[in-house]
């Protein structure tokens, strides 16, 4: 069943076209990713989906209504069915974590006793049962985002929108937040629509992906399909790449994968099983080679002997291209 149908929406700011003729459907229960570089129009698209931004033309069908055409007054009740998770959490600093989670319920006019029960459930769900009394200033980034997720879920939405939910978090926290979102999608059967600029997030979370480029749809498909199409590589080489390894620096590794022996997805699973955290920056199929192979550019936070030798055992060739220092 289609939950959300976007039909030919366009949006311009002055002479700049931020979105051009975007159409896609999100099915009930799907985990739908939109990936694109900075300025591609991702946030603008997401804001159209809950009516915070009006497209110049096109339709957005949700719950039998066209969000692009509704006046503000009639958008208000529909927004209560759509949860939003923000990149910078957007928690109210004047309220405790629990009161932040309770806010959508207060807005929906739910009685205090019921509110409290639901808040406790949600704090449990995101693993922060003991942190409800704290103000946001006293929570870590990962904890803030968990509260943000609990808040987005509070009013039992039918759709969860995530705008770069993990890009303000460090790699480990990112993984745990992605796992939580994936859990919510599978166990609560909640439809997820997320935007990101990281291929890795799409890979870990998405069932379907849309690649957005300068306001146009550049490609769509499953994460594996997108990943194997070099045209769609969205991550350039980091510009702070250096050739010498400094204390605590992380490696950028180029490796050639034999796709017959190690297709990409199983390769990533293998990395995960060995608890090697790595981010794929680019994946490009080899040309002029008889055996199907793929050039993969990896960001390896821990370039230890052990990790490199494991990569060596999986790939046809491994080469450390350079080092980057973590920008924290």
């Amino acid at each position: 069943m289609t939950l959300l149908a976007v039909e030919n929406i366009s949006r311009s700011f002055g002479s700049h076209t931020a979105l051009h003729n975007i159409s896609f459907n999100v099915e009930q229960g799907d985990s739908f990713g939109i990936i694109g570089r900075s300025g591609a129009g991702k946030s603008t698209l997401l804001r159209c989906l809950n009516g915070l931004e009006k497209p110049d033309s096109g339709r957005i069908l949700f719950c039998g209504e066209d969000l692009a055409a509704l006046p503000e007054k009639r958008l208000v009740p529909l927004r209560r069915k759509i949860g939003v998770v923000f990149q910078h959490f957007n928690l109210l600093s004047s309220r405790t974590a629990a009161a932040n989670v309770a806010l959508p319920l207060e807005i929906a006019g739910i009685a205090k006793a019921q509110r409290q029960k639901r808040v406790n459930e949600l704090l449990d769900l995101v693993g922060l049962a003991d942190h409800g009394h704290k103000y946001p200033a006293f929570l870590s980034g990962g904890q803030k985002q968990r509260i943000g997720i609990a808040r987005a879920l509070a009013a039992n939405p039918v759709l969860l929108l995530c705008d770069e939910a993990t890009s303000a978090l460090d790699p480990e926290t990112t993984d745990s937040v992605l796992a939580l979102l994936s859990d919510i999608n599978r166990k609560l059967r909640l439809t997820l629509l997320f935007i990101t600029h990281e291929m890795d997030v799409v890979h870990k979370l998405g069932h379907h992906v849309l690649v957005l480029k300068d306001g146009h749809i550049a490609a769509r498909g499953t994460p594996a399909e997108i990943l194997q199409n070099s045209e769609n590589s969205t991550m350039p080489l980091p510009d702070n790449l250096s050739t010498d390894a400094q204390n605590g620096s992380q490696a950028i590794v180029r490796l050639t994968l034999d796709l017959k022996e190690h297709p990409l997805t199983p390769f990533l699973i293998k990395l995960e099983q060995n608890t090697i955290s790595a981010t794929i920056l680019r994946a490009q199929p080899h040309q002029n080679i008889e055996q199907p192979a793929m050039d993969v550019l990896l960001h390896l936070p821990a370039p230890t002997e052990e990790n490199l030798s494991l990569l060596n055992s999986l790939a046809r060739s491994v080469e450390v291209t350079g080092y980057v220092t973590p920008d924290l």
Binding site: P77, N90, L92, L103, E106
Partner: peptide, 23 residues
């Protein structure tokens, strides 16, 4: 961003004043 968050929850203009702007 906080105003956006409360509007996205389905907050009315009055709720934005009461829950976000004033506190």
């Amino acid at each position: 961003g906080l105003v956006d968050a409360v509007r996205a929850m389905g907050g009315t203009r009055w709720m934005v004043i009461r829950y976000v702007l004033l506190p």
